[in-house]
């Protein structure tokens, strides 16, 4: 079964345009700027250049909003096509189900990437205006790590959208899973050491199988002005993220190809 890249890019363009027509992104972007500026206008003991808390709040908002945009947009792509019946004329054209899913996922990923770029540009501008300096390397690394992490989340949401019936349940499950990995992911193996068998092995299997999306969170490095990550380690991290995105997309394609649409 051949995959035509033209079809994938055409479908990606359609889902990108669809995402930009929605107002969610613009609202959260303005909200982030307003909240950050409001926090930045506070005076703490007449000390200039205090930027840590502003950066922390701004990055927290970026992370929350980017995650919500990525999951909600991805979770509704396939179900809305099925529900409205537009999937049938689409599949009547010379387009395979794999192309539809990959095209839509790619569109979501690129659209969230562009939105994320705007977020990081604003963050960089605000941070530089308060601190009068900016570590370009770390900011660029942070952006790409965040974008690749969203790639994993988007592919997870697409897999969920072909498994679960309703987009709402898929969205909730994806958010819970992502937050759980962010909070617990790094500590699972450490926690399993205090457990008895077979729970210990089960936890360890989960630890080594889940995508460790918490690794892509460079917020602490940015907030506390640490130097950029070693580039070899950073590229390894990107490969790790892309590999997980491909795995989830591949499984989603397999499930979608076997799915009865009505």
């Amino acid at each position: 079964m051949g995959i035509k890249l033209n079809n994938i890019f055409a479908l990606a363009g359609v889902s990108m345009r669809e995402m930009y027509r929605r107002k969610d992104f613009y609202v959260v972007l303005i909200l982030t700027v307003i909240l950050t500026l409001a926090m930045g206008s506070m005076n703490f003991f007449n000390e200039p250049g205090v930027a840590g808390y502003i950066k922390e709040i701004c990055l927290l908002l970026i992370w929350i909003f980017a995650l919500v945009i990525a999951i909600t947009a991805s979770a509704r792509q396939i179900p809305s096509e099925i529900e409205s019946g537009t999937i049938f004329p689409l599949l009547a054209k010379p387009v395979t189900r794999t192309e539809v899913l990959v095209g839509k996922a790619l569109g979501c990923w690129i659209a969230t990437g562009v939105a994320l770029l705007l977020f990081y540009l604003i963050f960089g501008l605000l941070a530089a205006s308060w601190e009068h300096s900016l570590d370009f390397s770390l900011n660029i690394q942070s952006y790409f790590a965040h974008w690749v992490m969203l790639g994993i989340v988007i592919s997870m949401a697409f897999l969920g959208s072909v498994i679960f019936a309703a987009p709402s349940s898929n969205t909730t499950i994806c958010l819970v899973v992502v937050v759980a990995i962010m909070v617990l992911g790094r500590h699972l193996n450490n926690l399993s050491l205090n457990m008895s068998e077979p729970l210990r092995t089960i936890i360890q299997v989960i630890y080594f199988s889940i995508p460790h999306i918490e690794l892509f969170d460079f917020r602490k490095l940015l907030v506390h002005n640490y130097p950029a990550v070693a580039w070899d380690k950073f590229f390894l991290l990107l490969i790790y993220g892309i590999a997980y995105s491909l795995i989830f997309t591949l499984i989603a394609c397999l499930v979608f190809n076997r799915k009865r649409l009505r």
Binding site: E47, G49, Y53, N190, H212, Y226
Partner: peptide
Amino acid sequence: IDRFSRSFYPSVHVHADEIPRGQKEIL
């Protein structure tokens, strides 16, 4: 994973007062 993850978060112990005017971020 534990070893790899240490490249992406602060894994060296430095206090804020060890860098010039670093303590201002606590306030």
